[in-house]
Design a protein around this nucleic acid. Sequence first.
DNA 1: GTCATTTGACCTAA
DNA 2: TTAGGTCAAATGAC
Length: 381
Amino acid sequence: MEKSGDWEQKINLVNELTEGMELAKQLQMHLNVTTTTTATSSSSSSNEMHESLVLRILNSYDKALSMLKWNGSLGDNQQTIGRSESPRSLSGSPHSEDSDLEHKDHEHKNGSRKRKSAVSRWSKQVQICPGTGLEGPLDDGFSWRKYGQKDILGAKYPRGYYRCTHRNVQGCLATKQVQRSDDDPTIFEITYRGRHTCTSAAAASHSAPPSSSPKKQPPNTALNSQLFPQHQQQQQHPPENLLDFQTGLSAIASSGRDAGNQLSLPPLYFSPTSHVEAEGSYIRSPSVPDNNLIMGNILSPSFVPPAASASNYFPVPPPNEMTGVFGRNQAFQGLESELTEIVSGGKSATHSPTAGLDFQFGGSDQFEPSFPFDDPDLEFF
DNA sequence: GTCATTTGACCTAA
DNA sequence: TTAGGTCAAATGAC
């Protein structure tokens, strides 16, 4: 299902590029003809023809680029992380996300089942680094409470639904969905919806690291159990295995339209005790033209992984699962400290507020406080 | 006892 | 009719 959608996407992309190329050829021929003819040939009709061809070419390439941007999997640095949206949205145009997904939200007539109308939605894909703590990328600094889990058609893993813990107390309507990638179990697609209005939003943005949540257990403990159900009893693995995983964490975030909004993010590292996480996501400005965005700076060699955190938090997947993915330890080393985040999505994707619990950026004061939630230019509601 | 998670049921959009 | 999203009772952990 999803595969077919992706295939269609590629077909469309090829078609658009092909058309653009053909139009360009026509234009070239036309220009050759006009330049070799006398001045009288430069009539208005000829100019119109040129303009028409140029517009069509531009339009064609624009579509193609939009597809590329939208479908992160086609990006150079996105590797296999391209599982973007749900199958439903995959079938749409690159711009369908806003209209499609956001309009799905609605207000239930009796009000008991609220679906935020026009709530912004953006997603990012996170590749977890086994040695750095699973929750790192999954925990974004806010306190989430799981309210549901659903098996998604065509997806191997169930999707988890989370809402802000402060929903009842502070009326915070932020929610997020966590979907594990079929292709690569180390990749999670986290879709955020709505804006945090709770106090923890501010705390997260200014981030003092881990402060924490009053919760009795790490916020993502449950998440881990969901994503790696078998791991709960395997968290105490032999140190030798863990040592192999204790590599750093770095992130590559790519987003089509955010080049202009690229933020300089400090190196990432996980804090074993933190409850405040800063996710290296980006604000996706609707107006900023995009191109692959590579957070090379995040790959900074200065990154220093907290040695202890990995062993404390990373739930080592069972051999039958992780072996296939990482080839046991060796493959993990290949992944070595890569946290790949891709922000895809909505018109207002942004730098995630996450001040999170399990990993943080270089320093709390380095964390970009201007998370979209507080950005007046971004429309969340 | 409190709070979070699990899970089946329900509702809505496509 | 189907699938995604949410609710809420049941269950478990602390």
